[in-house]
Design a protein around this nucleic acid. Sequence first.
DNA 1: TATTAAAGTGATCAAATGATCAATAAGGAA
DNA 2: TTCCTTATTGATCATTTGATCACTTTAATA
Lengths: 216, 216
Amino acid sequence: MPRAKTQKRKRLSRDEREQQIVDEAVRYFAEVGFGGQTRELARRLGISQSLLFRYFPTKDDIVKRVYEEVYLRRWRPEWEDLLSDRSRPLADRLNQFYHEYTDAIFEFEWVRILVFSGIKGVTLYQQYLKLIHDKVLDRICTELRAEHNFPDPIKKPITVRETDLAWNFHGGIFYIAIRKFIYGAEKRENFDAAIKDSIAVFLAGAPTVFKSILKK
Amino acid sequence: MPRAKTQKRKRLSRDEREQQIVDEAVRYFAEVGFGGQTRELARRLGISQSLLFRYFPTKDDIVKRVYEEVYLRRWRPEWEDLLSDRSRPLADRLNQFYHEYTDAIFEFEWVRILVFSGIKGVTLYQQYLKLIHDKVLDRICTELRAEHNFPDPIKKPITVRETDLAWNFHGGIFYIAIRKFIYGAEKRENFDAAIKDSIAVFLAGAPTVFKSILKK
DNA sequence: TATTAAAGTGATCAAATGATCAATAAGGAA
DNA sequence: TTCCTTATTGATCATTTGATCACTTTAATA
């Protein structure tokens, strides 16, 4: 016999409820954009709309919290060591990094909220782009130089052209996520093979161009 | 002596006014997203908000019209011939194509509305992605094969891996536009140099990987 | 079991916003 | 100049939506 229909009001602790709201807000706003309404969010949570405002003073505060939740705690510090570990071939390192990175990042919520943030004019994403530049692209350029006995960045700083090439490489991979989660134009789940090929092209083609950039 | 302050009501022809509305709508929605309000749009046009609804039954109809305006009439058919013109080196062709293409496409309104369309769930962009696939990527793969005496696509169809590589290449270039117009993280105006380097990396690196894909 | 702090709700406000319509006026035709 | 079609407007409606608040209910605890 099914349980009685009495839907008893559930009373959660402050922290539990707050986390529950944030979790659902991440899902909801990723799906419909930040134009989504507090009433619908409350409906999904099975709570009254007014309760949301007991936890967050304004809707904007919910949005801010969603950003933090999605961006922070995704970057793994060990990736920095991985990329710089010269005991392994660069191709191996790049493959492992992008495998793990896309595993962490290629997610409906993450990608869409990243793109929404650009549209809303929020500035948090700039921190993210800086992170990519500092911890990924700069390292890739450095390692590429080391691999081919080009001057160390300490002697000759990484040039704009080298950084552009790294952005280009990284962007090509990220564009998979855009096709998939923003445009829904890509149904596959696994991109390891495509990423592997893309790394191979980059590692085979970049040295030539790096050489012409660094010669003289 | 300046003209009197009397702001006489201006009466335009049906067609003129309609075009004027569409033009401003493109600018306005690209700037603030499709959440923008009809009142503000009317204010920018210097007309009453109600007049908008004399030209378009609903706001959604304005939005649809904006899509059409932005997407259509940008693709130049001669690009298809350009990419396939084997009397010139492939590197030249790619450089000219991406120079002209980014010239036509790397525009605030165009890029932002493309991305918004993905968010709003509109399907028009899929036509656009198909266009890129059919008229650009497929051609690039074909030409790359010809350049290196790999089997003709008629005998051996372009593989998924080859297409992925082409997407990757194209996406890397498009990602410049995303950094610039969505994230505002790129201030430069001219990307010819970066694009040229990116083409060089691709052309230097792709043949190796194509070979391993096509061998057997 | 009685008490009570605080989690939770429903009703409601106020502003924003898409849409409507009767009234007005521009400007070409007669 | 006068007339008349229709572009244009201001006032207004109806709905949506973020936010508030007095009141209700839960469950830990004394």
